[in-house]
Design a protein around this nucleic acid. Sequence first.
RNA 1: GGACCGCUAGCUCAAUUUGGCAGAGCAACUGACUCUUAAUCAGUGUGUUCCGGGUUCGAGUCCCGGGCGGUUCACCA
Length: 489
Amino acid sequence: MTDRGEDILQQRLAKLERIRERGIDPYPSRYCKTHTTQQAMALLDKDPDADNLTVSVAGRIIAKRGMGKITFLHIADSSGKLQALLKKNLLGEDKYAFFKDFDIGDFIGIDGRLFKTNTGETTVEASEITMLTKSLQPLPEKWHGLTDVEKRYRQRYLDLISNDDAQKIFKIRSKVITEMRRLLDERDFIEVSTPILNPTAGGASAKPFITHHNTLDRQLYLRIATELHLKRLIIGGLDRVYEIGPIFRNEGISTKHNPEFTSIESYEAYADYNDVMVNVENMISSIAQKVLGTTKTTYNDEVIDFAAPWKRIDLRQSLIEYGGIDVEDYLDTEGLRQKMRDLHIDVDNRMGRGNLIDKLLSTYVEPNLIQPTFLMDYPLEMSPLAKKKPDDPRFVERFEAFAGGMEIANAFTELNDPQDQRERFAQQLAMRQAGDEEAEMPDEDFLTALEYGMPPTGGLGVGIDRLVMLLTGQPSIREVILFPQLKSK
RNA sequence: GGACCGCUAGCUCAAUUUGGCAGAGCAACUGACUCUUAAUCAGUGUGUUCCGGGUUCGAGUCCCGGGCGGUUCACCA
């Protein structure tokens, strides 16, 4: 009870009581505002000579400067902030005294006339003030804001109140998704929703979350991709589909990984991965242009330019260029493994050729792909759902897009030969039985669907969180997810 | 999972090196102040120093164990 936080709470409760004693409801249901703070600001800018512009604005008190018979305030809403001036001689003795019980953090409504102060700041001179919501907890410090990272994530609302950048990031995130939808809708894609709870978790190599449905008494997996359902829709004759939504992977947490993240996957019939590549570079550069006003962004002190066309590099060539290794010189898996050991790369005996090559990529190539780059033509073993290259069946028509050293997109010409798909599932099952927990689970129902016939199709997946990291210059995925996964308190 | 760093008032941080009364700014409270904007000025109060043990006359500080967070490595399309 002697705790100071308790004291502040007690003081606020006393103020609340005094407000109620005046017969005033400190939590009224609504308030009729005529303008946002930004609109009010613009009103006077448009007509600087007007001295009779009256507005009703509402927001949270974020600063208070009392000077005896007058008080300056700043109130904030999601459009911005506006200064207010309260004068004792205008409001009257009683109302001005009433304001003593208002604190930083309270929501208030202000009616009044707009004018410019001596310093030129647009200000509303209050003729009436209304308590809209009494706040009982003190806000974070006004100058430094809230910097404690844990608190920022656990109490994101405080972060959003006190750090302008936090709001900015999530507004950009929203615009990125809106713009992505608009561009796809414009091209006659339709947006769909497919199940999150599934009897098998397919479409990617990742460990799933497992849950249980009581009534069905059945084990279900949270989806690790939307791929297999979206392809069923292509089979069903919806030629252009996409889905934006959460994906769940039961894997490590890092600055680039959150157990739940947002992906967009799109599938387009009669297209191949070359068509998809063009669409990706066009889509992302348009989004950057629309959302940031430029195709350039700064990430880790490097300027990244998303303007199309992006660099394209063959996977084998990339390893020659950045790692000095031609995997064609090591056609035998054991030989490649030995070569990698010689290079002091940590390899494990269970890793197949695909995994070994993947490891080489993440060691030598990916960190160097700062400017947007398509890495093309992946080894077959790494890509059980992608179509083989006609001229070299050891590789598939697949690309991943990288920027800032991070993978942001993955796409391929979809495998639509049901017999080939069945063999690939069998290979994956063998890898699974050999201890690879992330190998694809066979999906008999999907195979049946493929047997009905899927047209040639180009598919795409983009990690929206990572794209937003790049566009907002954030080094951690937690900065672009409102409520990132944390250890339990 | 490993390594490193951190956790002190509602918030931002000192005090830890060398164990010796736990401190400042903001926020809050009282008062002054009619153009301030990190308002200013005078005054007031504020603590489970993340938790639990241990060493010591004495621990925020040293030791052991635990929790949480950050970074990084491992892992991870």
